[in-house]
Write a protein that binds this DNA or RNA. Structure first.
Lengths: 110, 110
DNA sequence: ACCTAGCATCGTCGGGTGGCGATGAAGCAG
DNA sequence: CTGCTTCATCGCCACCCGACGATGCTAGGT
């Protein structure tokens, strides 16, 4: 029998990982390639401990991976294709949602 | 100019709306069609106030809409196609994530 | 008019979470 | 070895959030 509840929780956890602006910023930055914690720290303007915690959160969901390189850790996305598809579809959904009130819809759908 | 920060916050809010098992369950139930609050209440086993709050949350993100019908409110999904695409891609991402790297398990849930 | 059904909202409470600084381990430079 | 850098973890704090019950409103039934 299929564990709907379990899958639901896992899916909720995945979305939770993406439900924070800082983490989204981290993900978008990792799209560009591997980055160290200190790089993300400088880019986000957050404390190093905060960034590490965010990375741990993303790692728990399997979205990112850390590769040790000397004293540093190189972080990168795990399944960037699917992840970007999720983000892209979400943005499209936002575009559809963000229609200004009072603005009437034009009936040509592309 | 484009407010990246604002879009980020909106996207985070969208994912936040999907980051709760109860809300995911509501969405999946609304896929089947319109439903009243009391129906969802019975289906989820949650208090009516809780369900109303979840629906308000989903409504704030533009994911659902309420249509007044008598004393009741019929709730339905807004952009079910794109929303289902987001959920589907997320599940696919979970499938990829659930596999430990280096160890290819033969047991796939299904 | 009166009661019931359905719903949104408010107040509350316990747990979860993001933010920070401090600490300690691990690796590079001298 | 000493010192510096980088990072993960811990403790703390403020805030957010999901859960509930209670309240009040509206619509339909009698």
């Amino acid at each position: 029998m299929k564990q709907e509840t379990d899958g639901l929780t896992a899916e909720a956890a995945l979305f939770h990982a993406l439900s924070d602006p800082s983490r989204l910023l981290i993900v978008r930055h990792l799209v560009l390639g591997e980055h160290r914690v200190v790089d993300l720290t400088a880019h986000l303007g957050l404390a190093q401990s905060t960034v590490s915690k965010h990375l741990a959160c993303l790692k728990d969901c399997g979205l990112v991976t850390s590769r040790p390189e000397g004293r540093a850790s190189m972080w990168s996305l795990n399944h960037s294709d699917e992840l970007l598809e999720v983000l892209g579809t979400a943005e499209r959904l936002l575009d559809l949602t963000a229609v200004s009130p009072g603005h009437h819809y034009e009936d040509h759908h592309g």
